[in-house]
Amino acid sequence: MTKEVNIDWSNLSFSYMKTDLRYISKWKDGKWDDGQLVEDNKLSISEASTALHYGQQCFEGLKAYRTKENKIQLFRPDENAKRMQRSCDTLLMPKFPVERFVDACKQVVKANEAYVPPYGTGATLYLRPFMIGVGDNVGVKPAPEYIFCLFCVPVGPYFKGGMTPVNFIISENFDRAAPYGTGGVKVGGNYAASLVAHKNAVDKGFADCIYLDPKTHTKIEEVGAANFFGITHDNKFITPISDSILPSITKYSLLHIAKEYLNMETIEGDVYIDEIDQFKEAGACGTAAVITPIGGIQHKDKLHVFYSETEVGPITKKLYDTLYGIQFGDVKAPEGWIFEVE
């Protein structure tokens, strides 16, 4: 008999909730153990762990979706596994195998099936895999041991209001990442560096800030913790490219959808802040946000409004509906994008 949980699915926020089981595997003496599901949501680690002192840690974010037929599916978890491996390479951490990563996702979703929100509520089951360097280590060097863990939590929209336009402000005084730094991988330090800039933006009445390229401060890089895209007046889908941008799985999915489903020309290239009037629509995209329409961008003393501050542009809506449909099983997915949890 399936467990029942008392949750108001339609009013979930994007916040933590303890679920029943999470997956944990430990690396020691050059190899990963077999891994297991555990009830305890607390980790016990050495006070000298490199994750605590030197930021040797990385993480991922992906979701599980319940379809109209009550099946549960994952969206491109193998791509999250590969991206985590790239993060591990950058931080000299042992890579967790792609097949084991995907299997761990399936195990956690299956073990917490009661927390997968019903179809039609707009809510999803968010999965957070992460790896930390642990063990007794005071010097600045890679840790002697590592923990890979994966937990899940049911969530609602990342931005309140869901698929409604919000305004952003350009961050003039803070960079998200350094040139040749860790901006292209998913490590905690990138997010710690964004906290003050995010608070400043919210205090001014904006959803978040937009970061410009750290070298010249002339090109859009990221929208808070999400990727940027714009729709030009001649219907081209353009998104920034840079070594200091996290390669969003959602963004690359949208590039494919725009080209193959909507027959649009797609471009990864420089997006200069002084040339944003080329766009009739704009948005932020990522696993947590999915697509958040950008109503306007405040740059210096001017608010540049795209399609509308209150209504979603038609192409952004089509992109969202197609991606959302694929994730929830209502639109046929490209081969290899969907992994069913059985």
Rank of each mutant, 00 (worst) to 15 (best):
F339S: 12
D321G: 10
K318E: 15
R86W: 07
Y272H: 09
C152H: 05
D208F: 08
L52N: 06
G35C: 10
A143Q: 05
S44V: 12
D243L: 10
G120A: 03
I7R: 04
K95D: 07
Y126K: 00
K31M: 06
K63C: 09
F174M: 08
A111P: 00
I273N: 07
F130G: 05
T250L: 09
I7G: 09
M84V: 05
E311I: 06
L254H: 12
A111C: 05
R100H: 10
S10T: 15
Q36M: 08
K236M: 14
P247C: 03
A201T: 13
F96P: 04
K68C: 09
N70A: 12
Y191F: 11
K71E: 14
T287C: 10
F151Q: 01
M264C: 05
G61M: 07
T310M: 06
S171G: 10
K68V: 12
E145M: 02
I147A: 06
D20W: 00
L125D: 00
Y119H: 13
Q107I: 02
M84S: 11
Y119C: 03
V155M: 00
Q298C: 13
L12R: 07
I257Q: 04
N11M: 02
L52D: 01
S194Q: 15
A289Y: 07
G224F: 10
V187Q: 01
R100A: 09
N70F: 10
Q298H: 15
G135M: 04
P314Y: 14
V102K: 00
P214I: 04
Y272W: 03
R100P: 02
V116I: 08
G135P: 12
T239F: 02
P129H: 04
L262T: 07
F75T: 02
L303V: 14
G296C: 00
V290N: 06
I24V: 15
N190S: 01
E172W: 05
F339N: 11
D301F: 04
M17H: 11
L246R: 06
L62P: 10
T182S: 13
I338R: 06
A143L: 04
T322M: 09
I297A: 08
G230H: 12
E265T: 15
S15R: 04
F339M: 01
S15E: 13
F96V: 00
P293D: 04
N167S: 14
Y16R: 05
I220S: 01
